[in-house]
Design a protein around this nucleic acid. Structure first.
Length: 574
RNA sequence: GCGCCCUUAGCUCAGUUGGAUAGAGCAUCGGUUUUCUAAACCGAGGGUCGUAGGUUCGAAUCCUUCAGGGCGCGCCA
């Protein structure tokens, strides 16, 4: 429930009670009526589209209906000082001072909760889920931060969120990974040269993993890989995962649960899920057609289990078994999602990289089939990140084939800048990340600009020798805000709406844009004091208007709440 | 060939689930500092919202056509 909901409800109620008088037969359309903060150039607190929405539903002219509703609002709603009609039928509204101070007091009371709309859904968010065969690279980084901030956002808005990492510790790539570790171990122990075969992992981190294994298990038997495979698999995956967790940690990310593919296969979760689909007749034994396009060399016409995902919107049916009868990656994922469904979430969200878009339809189909269309899976795709340095494409000067890792990134740029920057675009457009730009200290660097705003506010409170966390009481008798303060206040009001919209659309980038806008309004007000003595806040070391200070405190509250969601720190002094 | 995403100012992008004269930053040009952080602020120019249709009081937003760019199209993970 955001702070305007009560006013919206009052308006709706008024319309329903006066439907006859307004000659409205259809009041169903009321659900799409909005109460919003109008664009800055209009000097109003609120804007309502009720006349236009209802006019459409009842085939009436908006202007005429607007006039009647205007009269109704003026007569009945005592908190409004002014209701004007503008444009195609907007009702623009101003609050009376008493209403404004009441809202301000509410915000101050809520403080670190201001903006939260107390939703109570249970979300499952799966993100990162990078294969434990190597370190995290920049491609993972965007999805990781997107997922983390989205879960912060949803939690802030009152929901319960489980942050989950799915570990693909099964399959051929993992076998090759374990084999690579094995060969590195032999290299260290027996001086046997590591052959750089195509399917193996050559990276230096494999050597590190091998060294650590020798530290903990100096007597490990390296005669035959098959004899120690299970043990080595476990050791290697754990060490690799530690490396990934360490990187995530440095980015400020911590998952609640790690789910292991191997476990799901061992404890028959996969088998049970497939059987469930069999019972529903969505899984059959049969043949698939050879895929079109590029020729696949391993393709074989063999009878196998097939999920009829085309029944649920997929382009084609999907294999659940490989040639040797073992489960495909997709089959494991069916099992995994069946497990997710069994845990009774209201909503499942997967964060994927752009290279996994092709996968969305089939996993959505699986969730639909498993849950009888009751559970919805939202797959959010993060597009590519392109790295730049001083405007030029950036590549590490290491040997060819090396990707840029999160570690590399963190050695050049701090966590705060990375987090803010990764959310400076909507997730479904490509993102240019310029190393040199995020380290600059100017308006072009959004992180800096917002942090600087907060630092200025702190500096103000330092000068006044006042605590920023202190609760002040608004001076209702002298409540007379200037235009800068009114603009700031309206933006502050807009915060709960921003949270609601960002949560609903699952678009955390709205938070960064909002904070930047808010900072702009503050900086503008602040600088006005340089130009015009009347706008100076402080005189002889004391605050001129307590109410001004409270407005500025509201800015600080919102910035604190916003940056907490983003996971970006806020220096008090810069 | 098919699917998903994108196309808005010179550049990089927002755009509140169909609304007001389409907004920011960078770049360009011009201005502001004895006084709360000038690491900032103010102003100016710059647009056929890729193309062509459609839906309606009203479209950057919804539908269709076409063009351009990105990602993907396994019985890999």
């Amino acid at each position: 429930m955001n702070i305007f909901e009560q006013y919206l409800n009052e308006i709706k109620e008024l319309i329903i009670n006066n439907a006859k008088k307004l000659e409205l037969d259809n009041t169903n359309a009321l659900k799409s009526v909005n109460l919003e903060i109008p664009p800055e150039k209009f000097d109003y607190d609120l804007s309502c589209n009720v006349a236009m929405v209802m006019a459409k539903a009842n085939k009436k002219k908006p202007e005429h209906l607007a006039k009647n509703i205007q009269a109704l609002l003026i007569e009945n709603l005592k908190n409004f000082s002014k209701v004007d009609i503008a444009g195609p039928g907007f009702l623009n509204i101003n609050f009376k001072n008493e209403a404004l101070t009441e809202i301000i007091n509410k915000i101050i009371k809520k403080k670190s909760n201001y903006g939260s709309n107390l939703k109570k859904n249970k979300y499952n968010l799966e993100f990162v889920s990078a294969n434990p065969t190597g370190p995290l690279h920049v491609g993972h980084c965007r999805g990781a931060i997107f997922g983390d901030v989205l879960s912060n956002l949803l939690s802030f808005n009152g929901n319960k969120v489980t942050k989950e990492y799915y570990v693909n510790d099964h399959g051929n790539q993992i076998k090759n990974f374990v084999k690579s570790v094995f060969l590195r171990l032999r290299e260290i122990k027996f001086n046997e040269k590591f052959k750089d075969k195509k399917e193996l992992y050559p990276g230096d981190y494999i050597i590190d993993i091998a060294k650590k294994i020798i530290e903990t298990k100096p007597r490990i038997n390296l005669k035959n890989l098959d004899d120690i495979y299970n043990e080595l698999h476990k050791l290697s995956i754990n060490l690799s995962l530690d490396m990934i967790k360490n990187d995530l940690n440095k980015l400020g990310i911590k998952h609640d649960i790690f789910i292991f593919e191997n476990e799901l296969i061992k404890n028959k979760t996969v088998e049970k899920a497939v059987n469930k689909l069999k019972d529903k007749k969505f899984v059959i034994e049969g043949y698939l057609e050879e895929p079109k396009g590029e020729e696949k060399k391993d393709w074989k016409r063999i009878k196998r289990l097939i999920f009829k995902s085309s029944l649920f919107g997929d382009d084609t049916d999907r294999a659940l078994q490989k040639n040797d009868g073992s489960w495909t990656y997709f089959a494991s994922d069916v099992g995994y999602h069946s497990f997710k469904i069994s845990r009774k979430f209201n909503s499942l969200i997967n964060i994927l990289g752009a290279d996994h878009t092709g996968y969305i339809k089939r996993i959505n189909a699986a969730v639909k089939a498993l849950s009888d269309n009751k559970v919805i899976l939202d797959c959010k795709v993060c597009q590519l990140v392109k790295l730049y340095k001083k405007g030029k494409p950036y590549k590490m000067s290491k040997r060819a084939g090396d990707f840029i890792t999160v570690k590399d990134l963190l050695s050049e740029v701090d966590k705060d800048s990375i987090r803010f920057m990764m959310l400076s675009r909507s997730n479904d457009v490509e993102l240019d990340f310029d190393f040199s730009k995020v380290l600059e200290k100017n308006k072009d660097n959004q992180v800096f600009y917002v942090q600087y705003c907060y630092a200025r506010i702190n500096s103000l409170f330092r000068i006044l020798k006042l605590d920023l966390n202190k609760t002040f009481t608004i001076d209702e008798k002298n409540f007379n805000l200037n235009i800068y303060e009114r603009k700031i206040l309206r933006k502050v009001f807009d915060w709960s709406k921003t949270i609601d919209l960002a949560s609903f659309k699952q678009e955390p980038h709205r938070i960064t844009f909002y904070l930047y806008d808010l900072a702009t309004l503050f900086h503008s007000y602040w600088s006005k004091g340089n130009e015009d003595e009347d706008y100076k806040l402080v005189k002889d070391g004391k605050i001129k208007q307590l109410n001004s200070l409270i407005i500025i405190q509201l800015v600080a509250i919102v910035i604190e709440n916003g940056m907490k969601i983003l996971g970006v720190s806020l220096p008090k002094k810069m």
